[in-house]
């Protein structure tokens, strides 16, 4: 076997393991910090692992077999997009793979009869439509700076991306708020509690092990977007880490000081605010 294969396999395994652990812990930290911001004690940091293990041990109740397929597809593409990002592949392709994950989720929502899940799926499509263009523009911006579409090219760039793409970064904060399902952008599912009009939206009809798969998929999605943000200060991982931590806390803070919004407002903010900022930045680079 050639050494490249071995190194790729090692990276893949490390990413899957690391992503799983880090994702769980980050979700735990998220819940703990949220609780502290609300004057509560909050669950232990390892609570998300308890939840996932418990869900895995529950009875397998499925509305139809397609649900399992879509849930696994969602998990697979979420993991794949993270692995490929770590391996430094082509950003556009990675973006499409992560979009596949979202599409699998939407199909999972559509595959059941529940009106809650169906309406949530429609809203999820709107969320995808709101977030993906910003992500594409961000990648175009990255390409204009580094002259290369691969993720590997970014750490080799002499200056941190943030210097050239400050507005794109701000726009990405909105897109990532949408992707992390945080208030005020959380219209299609509810992150922790189902206190909204669509119960838990797309997740409503998933139960037991299938839900566990979705939860883990969401962890990988979260890590993927955080790593993607980290690229803005690659290769110095210390500053990138600081950047990520503050971004994470910022998202939590916004989550805690705002009410959930409606999808029409979400589109307006993401397209006018997010795309506007990103487009201005890209245009400025291009000229």
């Amino acid at each position: 076997m050639n050494p490249l294969f071995w190194s790729w396999s090692a990276v893949t395994i490390a990413t899957v393991l690391g992503g799983f652990l880090l994702g769980g812990f980050l979700t735990g930290i998220d819940r703990k910090l949220t609780a502290r911001m609300q004057n509560r004690v909050g669950p232990p940091i390892v609570q998300p692992f308890f939840d996932v293990i418990k869900l895995w041990g529950k009875e397998r109740v499925m509305v139809n077999p397609m649900q399992l397929l879509y849930a696994n597809t969602y998990l697979f593409f979420s993991v794949a997009s993270l692995v490929l990002l770590i391996l430094g592949w082509d950003l556009l392709m990675i973006l499409f793979i992560s979009a596949f994950a979202s599409v699998a989720l939407v199909l999972g929502g559509y595959s059941v009869e529940s009106p809650y899940a169906r309406i949530a799926s429609q809203r999820e499509i709107i969320q995808i439509a709101a977030a993906e263009p910003v992500l594409v523009l961000a990648m175009v911006g990255m390409f204009l700076v580094t002259g290369d579409f691969t993720a590997a090219a970014i750490p080799e760039h002499p200056r941190p991306l943030l210097v050239d793409l400050p507005l794109v970064f701000v726009a990405l904060l909105i897109a990532i708020g949408i992707k992390l399902r945080k208030s005020p952008f959380d219209v299609s599912t509810s992150a922790h509690h189902a206190h909204q009009e669509l119960v838990r939206g797309i997740y409503t009809e998933f139960a037991g092990p299938t839900l566990a798969v979705l939860e883990v998929g969401h962890w990988f999605e979260m890590i993927f977007f955080l790593v993607f943000l980290g690229l803005f200060w690659a290769p110095d991982w210390r500053i990138a880490g600081l950047l990520l931590t503050s971004t994470f806390i910022l998202e939590l803070l916004v989550d805690n000081i705002s009410a959930r919004y409606t999808w029409s407002w979400l589109l307006k903010v993401a397209w006018v605010g997010g795309m506007g900022l990103a487009a201005v930045n890209v245009a400025w680079l291009y000229l």
Partner: peptide
Amino acid sequence: LADALGFESLFMQVFR
């Protein structure tokens, strides 16, 4: 109301 609006921390503060 805060809870229904998805404003969890307000819900918690009001109940406190």
